[in-house]
């Protein structure tokens, strides 16, 4: 795969903080991804019926469904087998990280994040699987 392919890749951002979505949207669009947004876990699951993103950036602490719950539901369904999941959360302890990976996440990034690192991580995952 080369970098041009990445332009067709879709990323969905799930976060209840609008300001963080604004920042993420800017960064990912600028890196050439197609971006969809959801401000809650439930909304994300709804959108996933129609949209088919390659990667999900998931906040954990959200009202309604938490990020962990969303991930667990997705991992139960074979159609989301190839969906990559990256947690982006303020919960930064080792235990939280372990719990995150246990639900089948590809990566776990702690807030506040480094813009460049986040973008390169997304790129790497989408490039190498």
């Amino acid at each position: 795969m080369n970098s041009t392919n990445l332009n067709e890749k879709k990323v969905m951002i799930v976060d209840d903080e609008p300001n963080i979505i604004i920042a993420l949207e800017f960064l990912l669009q600028r890196a050439g991804f197609v971006v969809t947004k959801a401000d809650s876990g439930i909304k994300a699951l709804e959108l996933l019926e129609t949209e088919h993103p390659d990667l999900l950036i998931l906040d954990v602490m959200m009202p309604g469904l938490t990020g962990f719950e969303v991930a667990a539901r997705l991992r139960n369904q074979s159609r989301f087998e190839h969906l990559h999941i990256v947690f982006l959360t303020a919960k930064g302890t080792e235990r939280d990280k372990a719990a995150g990976y246990a639900t089948g996440a590809d990566y776990y990034i702690v807030k506040p994040f480094d813009n460049d690192l986040l973008v390169s991580t997304v790129k790497e995952i989408l490039t190498y699987g």
Partner: peptide
């Protein structure tokens, strides 16, 4: 409290970096 502090700090950090970089 830590969580609630990290959230605005995340927005501030990310957006200010965007403004700085671009």
């Amino acid at each position: 409290v830590t969580h609630e502090l990290r959230t605005p700090v995340t927005s501030i950090k990310s957006l200010s970096k965007i403004m700085l970089d671009y």
